[in-house]
């Protein structure tokens, strides 16, 4: 294209900085660098497991088992540190995207490292508990990556340039207008509107929060009732028509904010398994390590 007086300056001096600033997701970060590294680690673990001859059979107590166990335990602690890294905004040439990328792929490689560490000697004990909890953490993490893959788009589409605050304000504003519009109505109709006004934005039941539809809720019921009433009228009632229009808008506004909260909840829900289970894993892991050394 046309000549420039000053070419775009190269202000990022290191390769990692360039990657951090690049438009690529954490999964594809640096040309799948961490995916490749994690694959090599997992592959090495599998190959060495097959090549190393431990007598009488592979177990956590051999030198090889200890090596894998130490790597696995340190890896778990390091993976946990993502929670600190995310919140500690220290200066420096790090990027959380790089950390997330490494967290995801090295976390997956842990399946191989830890499972091979067990030597497939599983049972009903604290050792297997630590392994199982760890798998639970990893599986919840995989679920997290999956929802991160497609839910953000829904969030963006549903939002349609409005913010959560604006969505809430819209509902409040419609309530105010509904209250005003309901003034000229008779008691029976006013009671229908009142039921819609009494409805909370957030549903109390978690099940409804995650799986409710737009046809649920007292506002939707009130709208249906008012619609029935207007159909029965001989002459159109402008007051009822206005209330009907407002109710329809409220139902739509509720639908939007509830969808918004639902998608956000789904994006976060897995963390309520992932994080507590991480601490449970660390607790079980500590018990595992202490007991192993105690009974040496």
């Amino acid at each position: 294209m046309a000549t420039r007086g000053a070419e775009g300056a190269e202000s990022y001096d290191s390769a990692s900085q360039r990657h951090a600033a690049r438009h690529e997701s954490f999964l594809r970060y640096r040309g799948l660098f961490w995916a490749k590294l994690a694959s090599v680690v997992a592959l090495l673990a599998v190959v060495s497991y097959l090549l190393v001859d431990v007598e009488p059979r592979h177990n956590g107590g051999s030198w090889y088992g200890y090596a894998l166990g130490t790597i696995g335990a340190l890896l778990i602690l390091w993976l946990t540190l993502l929670g600190v890294r995310k919140r500690a905004m220290t200066p420096g040439r790090w990027s959380l995207k790089a950390w997330t990328s490494a967290h995801v792929y090295l976390g997956i490689s842990l399946i191989f490292i830890a499972t091979l560490h067990t030597g497939f000697q599983l049972g009903w004990n604290v050792h297997t508990l630590a392994w199982a909890l760890m798998l639970l953490v990893i599986l919840s993490g995989l679920f997290g990556i999956t929802v991160y893959g497609f839910l953000p788009r829904y969030l963006s589409d549903n939002r349609d340039e409005t913010t959560e605050e604006q969505m809430l304000a819209t509902v409040g504003e419609l309530d105010r207008q509904l209250r005003e519009a309901a003034q000229p109505l008779d008691t029976r109709h006013a009671a229908i509107v009142q039921r819609a006004l009494d409805e909370e934005v957030a549903w109390a039941s978690v099940r409804r929060r995650l799986f409710g539809t737009r046809f649920l809720g007292t506002s939707a019921d009130s709208l249906a009732e008012i619609r029935r009433e207007t159909l029965l009228l001989r002459a159109p009632d402008p007051h009822l028509d206005r209330v009907e229009a407002l109710l329809a808008r409220k139902v739509a506004a509720l639908q939007r904010i509830r969808s918004h909260m639902r998608v956000r909840a789904l994006l976060e829900a897995w963390l309520y398994v992932h994080v507590p289970m991480t601490f449970a894993t660390i607790a079980a892991l500590s018990a595992h390590i202490v007991s192993v050394f105690f009974y040496w």
């Binding site: 438009h23 690529e24 970060y29 995207k97 997330t100």
Partner: peptide, 8 residues
């Protein structure tokens, strides 16, 4: 940008 976990 540094603190974005997903690269968005």
């Amino acid at each position: 940008v540094r603190a974005c976990p997903t690269g968005a």
